[in-house]
Design a protein around this nucleic acid. Structure first.
Lengths: 247, 247
DNA sequence: AGGCGCCAAAATGTATCCAATTTTTCAAGA
DNA sequence: TCTTGAAAAATTGGATACATTTTGGCGCCT
């Protein structure tokens, strides 16, 4: 209730989601309702609503009368979710091309690609530029998904982001060549969509996402701690659009 | 709490899910918490937990301070979810083939296909045989998904079933030729998996699901009421495996 | 010493109560 | 007659209190 257009339970859900994705609540850890409620400064009722939501989202495991535990995702699971994201986003390309992208969408993609070019123009990866890059990347992917005009597809891709690490907001920002190649994919996807080559766009997108997954998995396997720390540091919060209070 | 291994809230969630998928609660309709709680014979607290769950599952829309409404799915949305199911199950075929199906899995698929042959042997569609057919169909699809050994993929496909009509339990049981052709797909998919032809199995599966979607959408467009009634009558409840009470 | 069982403590699940917001009703004014 | 406003009713959201289940510990028996 309180002030804005969302309830305490909603707020708790987003807070908890961030805590989990950021690793503040460790996988496998039991969730003490009393403790957590006090920590967040609310009663158990809205907290439990939030917990039920997150469990349905797949971030928590639930067992009747034994409460919630933070779900632990194996590296293998993370890998597999990238596979799912890959086929879903590829399908988005197919559908978008089939429907035909509006000039507005194509122009938006071109603009995003151009803004990426600008960031890469220096030939190095400036850490300060990461947030801007992330915005560009998220926007690019979301624009295509929106262009598929398939609301459920968007929802499913969004659920994909509920798995730690599997998000277009998570970027390994340390290898210029890889980022450059990744952005080259963006170029080609935008071009393919402009010429209505859906299958081609889909193929590039599929590889685009799959490779990002492979890369991340490799890093996690080699040096889990380091990769995790870097990712948590760079993940940041997403695109929050809370309705403004109206009073 | 009560007796079995699940809570009142869990029970309410499954009950409500069935009510919504069966059309007992009409799309767009507001959910009165007091009424519904009394109807189900429980207090608002577990009901609200169930509502939060269903909202996260995408069966209800929620607006802060204004409660829940039954989500309405346009025919177009249903169509689009079949597209999603199609790519996901196709991907399951690819992965299963890549991993290599165990002989147990292949034998199971063969057995299921054979049981389908038996049902179709008469050359007509006996309404009495529908439940058995449905079990066969559900098992076939689930076996392949399990063979992909990708738990998240299974979860995502399961979420697909949260959309009314989009389920391998929903079967249009009135056209022998179509059912026969559909089962021929099963034959070919099983054979392709046995020979580790993942791409081939995926292609068949993709068309298998897509066509079912097209067919359903066509029926819904032509005569929504009739199709709906037939489907509700034939849908039945799924594969419930509640843990037995241990006391 | 180790295992078993019972009792107490803690944690979860549900019901009830209260607060805050939304919706409806009803009337007054233009 | 239609609109606008405010107050009452209805409904949702949150906090507290209670019941049930699980869990941990202690003593007893083998």
């Amino acid at each position: 209730m309180i002030v804005n257009g969302q309830t305490v339970a909603d707020g708790a859900a987003t807070t908890l989601r961030e805590m989990i994705l950021a690793g503040q609540l460790r996988p496998g850890e039991r969730v003490h309702q009393d403790q957590l409620a006090e920590l967040l400064g609310l009663s158990r009722t809205p907290l439990r609503t939030a917990l039920a939501t997150l469990a349905t989202d797949g971030l928590l495991d639930y067992e009747a009368n034994r409460g919630y535990r933070v779900r632990s995702f194996s590296v293998d699971t993370i890998r597999s979710v990238f596979e799912i994201r890959s086929v879903l986003e590829a399908q988005a390309c197919r559908i978008a091309a089939r429907l035909g992208c509006s000039e507005a969408v194509l122009a938006r993609l071109d603009a995003l690609v151009a803004s990426g070019d600008e960031i890469l123009a220096s030939g190095t990866l400036d850490p300060a530029a990461l947030p801007q890059w992330r915005r560009m990347n998220v926007e690019f992917h979301e624009t295509i998904i929106r262009a598929a005009n398939n609301p459920l597809l968007g929802e499913f891709v969004a659920r994909t982001h509920n798995v730690p690490m599997v998000s277009d907001r998570v970027i390994l920002w340390d290898d210029y060549d890889i980022i450059h190649r990744s952005h080259d994919d963006h170029h080609r996807i935008a071009r393919a969509l402009r010429s209505s080559e859906g299958e081609r766009a889909a193929a590039i997108m599929s590889e685009h996402v799959s490779f990002a997954g492979d890369l991340l998995v490799e890093r996690l396997r080699n040096d889990p701690e380091a990769a995790l720390q870097q990712l948590i540091a760079t993940a940041g919060s997403g695109s929050k659009k809370p309705k403004k209070a109206e009073k």
